[in-house]
């Protein structure tokens, strides 16, 4: 049996497990959509002087939230839980190559993130008049790819500092929630003080958000390549991958 067959088979199971996990599905699929509806209801969706809709600012932020949830938060919690319950140890006791198992987890996060990208883009277009131009579509796809890959690595790296199953949601949210706020995900960065932006810019969430904002730019007259943002995200991903290779554990802490 080829490694590819094994990978696809495991991916199938990982997606099945995700669909059946109420917490994971809610925070990744439902909550971002609720936020999108809430934001446009609370802050309104006027048409600005330049003709763009206000929701053009919300959609990329919500998308950042969904991608981070699908590829970072959810896998970090899932993998910690599996480690502490001995599921990972059992996987290691079988002849399946470890990378197949890890890559499948990352791919399932990517599939969910891609699904959410399509859903949020469609909702933004149909209900809130947020236009996505063909010229900037490649930006969106590349940002999704780079973001998913890097965030998957960061999520796995986070499991190395999470001591227990109970601590997993607490630790990941304690790190991610403040990051969302200082990265322009909930509050557009045009309204935040400069030092907040400066701190936010140290971390990859802000850069994914900015890259996505560029791909939703309604006035883009050609594809823009947000190299600087991609570079920062990729660097974070590489550092995280190094941490994973060095410190990822398959056996429970207890």
């Amino acid at each position: 049996m080829s490694a590819m067959t094994r990978l696809l088979r495991q991916l199938n199971y990982d997606l099945l497990i995700f669909r059946r996990n109420p917490a994971g599905s809610f925070f990744t699929v439902i909550l971002p959509l609720i936020f999108l509806v809430l934001f446009t209801s609370i802050f309104g969706n006027e048409t600005l002087e330049n003709g763009a809709k206000v929701a053009t600012l919300y959609v990329p932020g919500i998308l950042t939230l969904a991608i981070a949830s699908a590829t970072l938060v959810n896998p970090a919690i899932t993998m910690t839980t599996r480690r502490e319950r001995g599921v990972l140890k059992r996987v290691r006791s079988t002849p399946i190559p470890p990378w197949v198992f890890v890559l499948s987890q990352a791919l399932s996060g990517f599939v969910i993130a891609a699904f959410m990208t399509v859903v949020i883009t469609l909702i933004g277009r149909v209900f809130y008049g947020v236009e996505l131009q063909w010229e900037t579509l490649p930006n969106l796809v590349i940002s999704l790819l780079i973001g998913s890959a890097a965030f998957s690595a960061i999520g796995l790296a986070m499991t190395t500092i999470i001591p227990s199953e109970d601590a997993a949601p607490a630790v990941t949210n304690a790190i991610m929630l403040p990051l969302y706020f200082i990265s322009g995900v909930f509050v557009p960065s045009t309204t935040t003080p400069g030092w907040v932006d400066a701190v936010g810019n140290l971390f990859p969430v802000s850069h994914l958000n900015q890259a996505l904002q560029e791909s939703y730019d309604p006035f883009a007259d050609g594809p823009a390549w947000p190299w600087n943002h991609w570079l920062v995200i990729a660097l974070w991903g590489l550092v995280a991958a190094a941490v994973v290779l060095k410190s990822f554990r398959w056996t429970p802490n207890r």
Binding site: R82, G86, V87, R90
Partner: peptide, 25 residues
């Protein structure tokens, strides 16, 4: 290996868990 205090994946059925494991061999 029958591991001390190991849990099956809670989202799967018993049958699915065994089929998934079988796929590793």
């Amino acid at each position: 290996i029958v591991l001390q205090e190991s849990e099956p994946v809670p989202e799967l059925t018993a049958g699915e868990a065994v089929f998934m494991q079988a796929g590793y061999y």
